[in-house]
């Protein structure tokens, strides 16, 4: 694919512009920390250049065998307390095509809702056998999976009685730096989702629903782990006519 002609850059399909109305805006006063951390000026809109249309790629060789197993990757003298679950799904782009080779990193609280972090102030106990981080890379069909325990809900200082619904944080690298995304996964059926000031930073309910993983009974491991299915969509690219072939996505 190497092409020394810099003009070829023009023929790499650029990415669809991000639908900023689908994402949370920067300034969301119900989530108080955003007030002083939200840019006030309009963003400078620009079609991506080669600087944004490229991105780092990560190899399976960089991962360890327990990286996608949060039940065992921090184990000291046994397994963590909690409901055993499997989280799986696909990474797709907006054109519906799988994104292979995507790096996913995830982090979460333990079953009691406590994070392993020095700034964490919640009184729920640490679990000596739970670290709370994991990672994996999607296969050729864009599929991923990992094993963990279901995180607990936790209170946080925003309003006097705000609680986060159970959630897992996700960080995703696609093929281009412009696809970079961090989000959170929620669990089907949790009534606390709709009381959360962070969920409600997303203006459109249908967009927030895109973050709710479905209980997937067909993929549970009997007598072992429940399964949740969580698909993630990254930005897609325009097709471009390049030497009379459609390419770019």
């Amino acid at each position: 694919m190497a092409d020394k002609d810099t003009n070829a850059i023009r023929d790499m399909g650029s990415f669809y512009q991000r639908d900023r109305a689908w994402h949370p805006p920067a300034f969301t006063p119900q989530y108080k920390t955003s007030v002083l951390r939200s840019p006030q000026h309009a963003l400078l809109s620009m079609e991506g250049t080669v600087s944004e249309m490229t991105g780092p790629r990560f190899g399976h060789g960089q991962l360890g065998p327990l990286d996608n197993d949060l039940i065992h990757n921090f184990s000291r003298d046994g397994e963590p307390i909690g409901q055993r679950i499997i989280v799986h799904g696909r990474i797709l782009d907006e054109n519906g095509r799988p994104v292979p080779g995507a790096l996913l990193e995830f982090w979460q609280a333990n079953a009691g809702g406590r994070y392993r972090h020095k700034r964490e102030a919640y009184l729920a106990p640490l679990d000596p056998n739970f670290g709370g981080c994991g990672r994996t890379i999607t296969d050729d069909d864009g599929r991923y999976w990992f094993r963990t325990i279901r995180p607990g809900a936790y209170p946080w200082p925003n309003g006097v009685n705000d609680w986060r619904p159970a959630h897992i944080h996700f960080s995703i690298f696609g093929h281009a730096f412009t696809q970079r995304l961090i989000t959170q996964m929620y669990f089907e059926g949790d009534p606390m989702i709709w009381q959360c000031p962070i969920v409600s930073t997303i203006p459109d309910r249908a967009a927030a629903e895109q973050l709710i993983a479905a209980l997937d009974r067909n993929n549970t491991l009997p007598m072992d782990a429940l399964a949740y299915k969580f698909d993630i969509v990254l930005r897609g690219r325009r097709s471009t006519l390049f030497e009379n072939r459609m390419e770019g996505n």
């Binding site: 689908w22 994402h23 907006e94 995304l181 930073t201 967009a207 895109q210 990254l234």
Partner: peptide, 9 residues
């Protein structure tokens, strides 16, 4: 077209 997964903090 699919919608991009919305961001969260």
């Amino acid at each position: 077209m699919l919608k991009e997964t919305p961001s969260q903090t």
